[in-house]
Protein backbone atom coordinates (compact mmCIF):
# COMPACT_ATOMS: atom_id res chain seq x y z
CA UNK A 1 0.00 0.00 0.00
CA UNK A 2 2.82 2.40 0.98
CA UNK A 3 4.62 1.48 -2.24
CA UNK A 4 1.49 2.32 -4.23
CA UNK A 5 1.22 5.79 -2.69
CA UNK A 6 4.96 6.37 -3.16
CA UNK A 7 4.60 5.58 -6.88
CA UNK A 8 1.63 7.94 -7.18
CA UNK A 9 3.62 10.66 -5.35
CA UNK A 10 6.63 10.18 -7.61
CA UNK A 11 4.44 10.38 -10.71
CA UNK A 12 2.84 13.61 -9.50
CA UNK A 13 6.24 15.10 -8.68
CA UNK A 14 7.58 14.15 -12.12
CA UNK A 15 4.55 15.67 -13.83
CA UNK A 16 4.97 18.92 -11.91
CA UNK A 17 8.71 19.05 -12.62
CA UNK A 18 8.15 18.49 -16.33
CA UNK A 19 5.15 20.69 -17.03
CA UNK A 20 4.51 23.16 -14.21
CA UNK A 21 8.02 24.19 -13.13
CA UNK A 22 9.14 25.50 -16.57
CA UNK A 23 5.88 27.45 -16.92
CA UNK A 24 6.17 29.09 -13.49
CA UNK A 25 9.87 29.79 -14.00
CA UNK A 26 9.02 31.69 -17.17
CA UNK A 27 6.54 33.81 -15.24
CA UNK A 28 8.58 34.35 -12.06
CA UNK A 29 12.15 34.80 -13.40
CA UNK A 30 11.64 38.36 -14.73
CA UNK A 31 10.02 39.32 -11.41
CA UNK A 32 12.96 37.86 -9.46
CA UNK A 33 15.44 39.69 -11.70
CA UNK A 34 13.63 42.98 -11.15
CA UNK A 35 13.47 42.47 -7.36
CA UNK A 36 17.17 41.49 -7.27
CA UNK A 37 18.09 44.77 -8.90
CA UNK A 38 15.78 46.86 -6.72
CA UNK A 39 17.58 49.42 -4.52
CA UNK A 40 17.94 48.52 -0.81
CA UNK A 41 15.61 51.32 0.30
CA UNK A 42 12.72 49.69 -1.54
CA UNK A 43 12.29 46.95 1.05
CA UNK A 44 12.44 49.49 3.83
CA UNK A 45 9.89 51.72 2.07
CA UNK A 46 7.50 48.79 1.56
CA UNK A 47 7.82 47.73 5.21
CA UNK A 48 7.26 51.24 6.55
CA UNK A 49 4.35 51.68 4.13
CA UNK A 50 2.53 48.73 5.68
CA UNK A 51 2.52 50.44 9.07
CA UNK A 52 1.73 53.90 7.70
CA UNK A 53 -1.09 52.68 5.45
CA UNK A 54 -2.67 50.79 8.34
CA UNK A 55 -2.58 53.99 10.41
CA UNK A 56 -3.90 56.20 7.60
CA UNK A 57 -6.74 53.78 6.90
CA UNK A 58 -7.81 54.10 10.54
CA UNK A 59 -8.21 57.85 10.06
CA UNK A 60 -10.87 57.21 7.39
CA UNK A 61 -13.14 55.28 9.79
CA UNK A 62 -16.19 56.93 11.28
CA UNK A 63 -15.82 58.24 14.83
CA UNK A 64 -18.77 56.23 16.16
CA UNK A 65 -17.27 53.01 14.77
CA UNK A 66 -14.05 53.67 16.70
CA UNK A 67 -15.93 54.34 19.96
CA UNK A 68 -18.57 51.62 19.52
CA UNK A 69 -19.17 50.05 22.92
CA UNK A 70 -17.04 52.54 24.86
CA UNK A 71 -18.68 53.98 28.00
CA UNK A 72 -17.85 57.52 26.84
CA UNK A 73 -16.04 59.32 24.03
CA UNK A 74 -13.23 60.82 26.07
CA UNK A 75 -10.00 61.40 24.20
CA UNK A 76 -8.08 58.62 25.94
CA UNK A 77 -10.55 56.09 24.59
CA UNK A 78 -9.91 57.12 20.99
CA UNK A 79 -8.41 53.95 19.55
CA UNK A 80 -7.00 55.82 16.56
CA UNK A 81 -4.65 57.57 18.99
CA UNK A 82 -3.82 54.24 20.65
CA UNK A 83 -3.06 52.67 17.31
CA UNK A 84 -0.82 55.52 16.18
CA UNK A 85 1.06 55.54 19.50
CA UNK A 86 1.63 51.82 19.01
CA UNK A 87 2.56 52.14 15.33
CA UNK A 88 5.19 54.88 15.72
CA UNK A 89 7.79 52.76 17.59
CA UNK A 90 7.48 50.06 14.91
CA UNK A 91 7.97 52.61 12.13
CA UNK A 92 11.02 53.98 13.97
CA UNK A 93 12.49 50.47 14.20
CA UNK A 94 12.17 49.87 10.46
CA UNK A 95 13.69 53.28 9.73
CA UNK A 96 16.55 52.71 12.20
CA UNK A 97 17.47 49.07 11.37
CA UNK A 98 18.01 49.40 7.62
Amino acid sequence: MIDFFQRIGAAIQQGLDTHVVPLLKTVLRPLDAWLDSAPPWMGQACAVSLFVLAGLWLLTLKREYIFQGAPDESRWRDLRIWAWLALIPFIALYVFFR
Binding site: D32, L35, A38, G43, A47, L50, F97, R98
Partner: peptide
Protein backbone atom coordinates in the same frame (compact mmCIF):
# COMPACT_ATOMS: atom_id res chain seq x y z
CA UNK B 1 23.08 40.50 11.96
CA UNK B 2 21.68 43.99 12.61
CA UNK B 3 19.75 44.25 9.33
CA UNK B 4 16.00 43.69 9.56
CA UNK B 5 15.31 43.42 5.84
CA UNK B 6 17.65 41.14 3.89
CA UNK B 7 18.01 41.26 0.07
CA UNK B 8 15.50 39.38 -2.13
CA UNK B 9 18.19 36.99 -3.31
CA UNK B 10 19.63 36.34 0.18
CA UNK B 11 19.92 32.64 0.85
CA UNK B 12 17.86 32.70 4.05
CA UNK B 13 14.18 31.97 4.73
CA UNK B 14 13.67 35.71 5.40
CA UNK B 15 14.34 37.92 2.32
CA UNK B 16 12.53 41.28 2.50
CA UNK B 17 10.04 40.38 -0.21
CA UNK B 18 8.92 37.31 1.69
CA UNK B 19 8.86 39.24 4.96
CA UNK B 20 6.78 42.16 3.64
CA UNK B 21 4.38 40.34 1.29
CA UNK B 22 4.28 36.79 2.66
CA UNK B 23 4.53 37.54 6.37
CA UNK B 24 3.40 41.17 6.71
CA UNK B 25 0.39 40.91 4.43
Amino acid sequence: HFTLLLPHSANTPYPWTGIVFGLGI
